[in-house]
Design a protein around this nucleic acid. Sequence first.
DNA 1: ACCGCAATTGTGATCGTTCACAACCCGTAA
DNA 2: TTACGGGTTGTGAACGATCACAATTGCGGT
Lengths: 353, 353
Amino acid sequence: MARMRKTVTIRDVAEDAGVSLQTVSRVVNGGPNVRPQLRDTVQAAIDRLGYVPSLAAQRMSGSRSYIILAINDRERTLADWRERRGTDWVDQMLLGGILTCSKYGYRMMVELVDTHSDHVERELGAAISALQPDGVILTPPHSENRLITTLLAQRGIPFARIGSNAPGPGIPMTMGDEGAAFLAASRLIELGHRAIGMIAGPAQYSLSGWRIDGWRRAMAARGLPSDGLLEGGDFGYESGTRAARALLDRNSGLTAIIASSDQMALAALEVARDRGLVVPRDLSLISFDNTPIVRFSQPPLTAVDQPIAETVSRAVEQLIARGQESDADQVIEVPAGLIERSSTAPAPAQDTA
Amino acid sequence: MARMRKTVTIRDVAEDAGVSLQTVSRVVNGGPNVRPQLRDTVQAAIDRLGYVPSLAAQRMSGSRSYIILAINDRERTLADWRERRGTDWVDQMLLGGILTCSKYGYRMMVELVDTHSDHVERELGAAISALQPDGVILTPPHSENRLITTLLAQRGIPFARIGSNAPGPGIPMTMGDEGAAFLAASRLIELGHRAIGMIAGPAQYSLSGWRIDGWRRAMAARGLPSDGLLEGGDFGYESGTRAARALLDRNSGLTAIIASSDQMALAALEVARDRGLVVPRDLSLISFDNTPIVRFSQPPLTAVDQPIAETVSRAVEQLIARGQESDADQVIEVPAGLIERSSTAPAPAQDTA
DNA sequence: ACCGCAATTGTGATCGTTCACAACCCGTAA
DNA sequence: TTACGGGTTGTGAACGATCACAATTGCGGT
């Protein structure tokens, strides 16, 4: 039955409208120097036949591929996914990217790349060769991977580095992690907390350091010490459990914790519950990321909202705008906000001092 | 600085290996009739130069595009996303699809399509014309949209209908919703529950009906009535609140609720809490979907685990396997499982009978 | 009436790959 | 020796669009 209707090509439109291929091409691409009347005629033919240019053909002839490639870390993504944590980044990147791409006639493709160095070059190289994207968006921890940035720079592909403010090729973009951590800590201090623990992310992520910096700065600004109040984690739940325990064991007076991921914050919540601490009465909690899971915990968590979608969206626009120029090393910052829910409250009355 | 290294093409490989383009092509595609020794020579050249065929060029000449297109509902996806509910389907689809695609040298692309009928044909048509995918995966509620299935059938593009078992073109696939609902209800009955409420999904989703059917069948099997125990929702949180209230208002003896989405189940949990009901002591709760959010609620919810990733993965394999043949109307079922957590418990002792 | 220039439209080459088919090689059977 | 045939390799056309450039048109100024 299925008549297998042949694809409509630019040639069909040209014949239908009685003009040359080039003219149709100009109309499609909004090129200059086409008589308005003729433009209308051609456009009518396009609409009538339902012509849409073939991405593949466009890529073959022109310079652009109309594809933006978003790179995520495979290991972390898959681990999160298999264990049914939220895949924080992926869906937000994807949706933020898709919307903005489609606004400009582009398409977004997601690639998962292995962290291990030998694979990186091969996998990313293969993806780039196959897709020949017009731009690439790097997310942590790949944003500062020299192999990757060098590879992209060599091939002359514009790219954005999300979560990196280092100099070098590519557009650096951040979500104001230092400021957000400062904000979170300041808010807790404002609520009367003095001993505020920090569960940091892994060191390979620059943003882990920035968040520590922001927290330290807020503490120092009020003359509060931060010794013994820092614990490391890997963003995952288990590491959050360990870190929260260590923090509570070591600091009897601890009344608040900032966690560098939602998972770790939820783990801290669980640890608190186990120890008979009521959140937020006995312990205040602020997490980073603000993925959907923190809305439905008991209590819902106050969280630093990472504007991932917005950042990716901005990245896409930057990449589309700059053809090849990768000059302006201006860091683009899309600041995070603090969403107050019910895991933060005034510090409990102190016994002394 | 950036030397703008030119892309490696099949011609470069051919010259390097001293053979014709066609021979390289055969080696790349594992074609037959190439002397093993020559094959090795060519392969060595490919590896040395880091050649990867251009997707665009492959599409231009050959018949395949190596692209699988996954269609999601735009409105629901975006609404969920903007309101920071989890985007249930998208990330699981994407990841399940990406992995399987990459196993076969394919790539997956996600497209958000408007529900409203006039747009559907245009948007999907445009995406198909531009991408010319080798296969399309339809998710509810598009799976049974006549305009869409007809369009795809006309163009001769193989496609899978997830969440649809209707006859017609395309490969029907389900996640055993009827059986899963039956299982969930049976489990509750086994725990001693007699009045088990059902919060269903919107009628435009076939799976809403199947879940009702399964629940009804389980009730009927034990001679339990299901009148007045059914409420409709739209999968969203607010609708869950309304439905749960209605259910509890109407049935004083209600001891369990099955909700057709995680969001609605969490809403029911909240309603129960408001009314002083302790879950699971006073009210047992089972949700559908098993997205990450239900692991961190208090208590964590027992949930029907929708194997979305697995289903999409199967779909991809089917689509890649069948070139054009869309014969076998055999429904492919990837059954859902029940993940028991802490929102289910034996029914409270009844006052009478 | 003529020239020049800009705006408009058309032409042929080109991108990187696969397809269909032709050409070649070599061993075996007549 | 010749012819056949299967396995192997090469050749030219084709896919659908854009690019660079050539051809045409129209209009104002002299």
